[in-house]
C-alpha cells in the first residue's frame, strides 16, 4: 500500500464538519510563519534529520494543536518556535520579523514545568514579571503577579515551594508564570503529559477557560487527539520522524464553550477524532514500512507456530 489514507478521503462523508483547509485563502493574517524549516542533529554519517520542510501558519488569535506520536520531533518544533534553537534551513517569522532567539513575546510552557525549586510560587511568577515589566512600579508588578496566581487558583499556596505542590499545581504555576509575561504567542509543549488522567482532564478545562478569557494566539503540542479536539481551532498532525513534516490540517468546527461530557456524544467530535486518529495511525504504519524497506538487515522468517493450550483444565481429562 503506497497511498496513505488522506484526510479528504476518510472525511468525504463529513466534509461539512471538518475540511482540509491548508489551501484556504480567506484565513486571517498569520502571526507566526514557518517556511520550509528543517532541523537535524549531528553531522556526517550520524546526522539525524528530525524535522524536514515544515510549513505552517499560526494565525492571530487561533488555538492550534500539533498532534504527533512521541519521538516525532514535537519538542524540537516548540524549541524552534520559541527560538531556543535555530533552524538549519528555512525561516521562522513572527509578525514578518525573522525569529533569531528566544523572547518573552513567545511564552513557552515547559513539559516538565521547570519551576525554580528555590523560589516560592510567587517568586517563580515574579521572576518573569519583574524581568518583562521592569519599567512598572513595584506595587504594579505585585498586583500583576497576584492577578495571575488567582487566575490559576493558587492564592492559598503563594508561599509554597514547587516540591510542596502536586503535579497539577506545578503546571498551573508554570502556566501562570508564562501567561503573566503577556506573551503574544503562547507555546504549550505537551503541558499535560506528565499528569495523571484526572488532573489532566481538570487542567484541560482550566486551559480552555483561560484561553477563552484571553483569546490569545496559542500553539499546543500534544499526543492526545481528544485533548487537541477539545481545545483547538485547528489540528495539524506531525508525521513521524525522522525527517518529520506536517500533515494536512483539520479544522475543528465545534462551538465554544466546549464541554467534555457533551462532546463525547457529539457526532462531529467522534468523526473528527476517528479521522485524526486514522490519519496518524496510517502515517505511522507507512513510515514503519518505509523504514523496513530501507533497512539492509537480513529478513528473518519467523516460524509459523502458535501456542498450545496447557491449562490444567485441559489436563484433567488425561
Amino acid at each position: 500500500m503506497n497511498a496513505i489514507i488522506s484526510p479528504t478521503t476518510t472525511m468525504s462523508r463529513t466534509d461539512a464538519e471538518a475540511r482540509v483547509i491548508h489551501t484556504e485563502s480567506s484565513a486571517p493574517k498569520p502571526m507566526m510563519t514557518l517556511r520550509n524549516v528543517s532541523k537535524g542533529y549531528g553531522s556526517g554519517a550520524t546526522r539525524n534529520e528530525v524535522l524536514k520542510g515544515i510549513n505552517m501558519n499560526l494565525r492571530d488569535g487561533e488555538f492550534l494543536a500539533v498532534v504527533g506520536f512521541s519521538g516525532s520531533g514535537k519538542t524540537t518544533l516548540t524549541q524552534l518556535l520559541a527560538g531556543l534553537i535555530r533552524p538549519d534551513s528555512g525561516e521562522i517569522t513572527m509578525n514578518e520579523e525573522v525569529v533569531t532567539g528566544p523572547s518573552p513575546d513567545r511564552g513557552l510552557v515547559f513539559q516538565n514545568y521547570s519551576l525554580l525549586p528555590w523560589l516560592t510560587v510567587r517568586g517563580n511568577i515574579a521572576l518573569s514579571v519583574d524581568r518583562v515589566f521592569r519599567h512598572w512600579s513595584r506595587a504594579q508588578r505585585h498586583e500583576h503577579v497576584d492577578k495571575f496566581i488567582e487566575m490559576v487558583g493558587l492564592t492559598h499556596a503563594v508561599h509554597r515551594r514547587p516540591h510542596e505542590l502536586s503535579g497539577g499545581m506545578r503546571q498551573r504555576v508554570s502556566l501562570a508564570r508564562t501567561l503573566a509575561m503577556k506573551p503574544k504567542v503562547l507555546l504549550l509543549d505537551e503541558p499535560l503529559s506528565a499528569l495523571d488522567a484526572l488532573t489532566r482532564s481538570v487542567m484541560q478545562d482550566e486551559i480552555l477557560k483561560i484561553w477563552e478569557e484571553e483569546r490569545q494566539t496559542c500553539l499546543m503540542i500534544t499526543n492526545d487527539v481528544d485533548e487537541a479536539i477539545l481545545v483547538a481551532d485547528r489540528i495539524v498532525p506531525l508525521n513521524p520522524g525522522p525527517s518529520a513534516n506536517l500533515g494536512p490540517a483539520f479544522t475543528v468546527e465545534l462551538d465554544r464553550p466546549r464541554n467534555k461530557t457533551e462532546l463525547n456524544h457529539n457526532e462531529r467530535f467522534k468523526q473528527l477524532r476517528n479521522a485524526v486518529t486514522n490519519y496518524l495511525v496510517a502515517v505511522r504504519q507507512k513510515s514503519r514500512r518505509d523504514e523496513a524497506a530501507q533497512s539492509t538487515q537480513v529478513r528473518i522468517d519467523r516460524p509459523n507456530i502458535s501456542p498450545k493450550d496447557l491449562s490444567l483444565s485441559g489436563r484433567t481429562q488425561l
Binding site: L84, S103, P104, L108, S114, L127, R131
Partner: peptide, 17 residues
C-alpha cells in the same frame, strides 16, 4: 538543569542575572 537555562533564555536574563 537545561530547562532552568531555557527559562533564563526566554526571559532574556542578563549574564549577571
Amino acid at each position: 538543569d537545561k530547562d532552568y537555562m531555557n527559562v533564563a533564555k526566554v526571559l532574556k536574563l542578563s549574564w549577571s542575572q
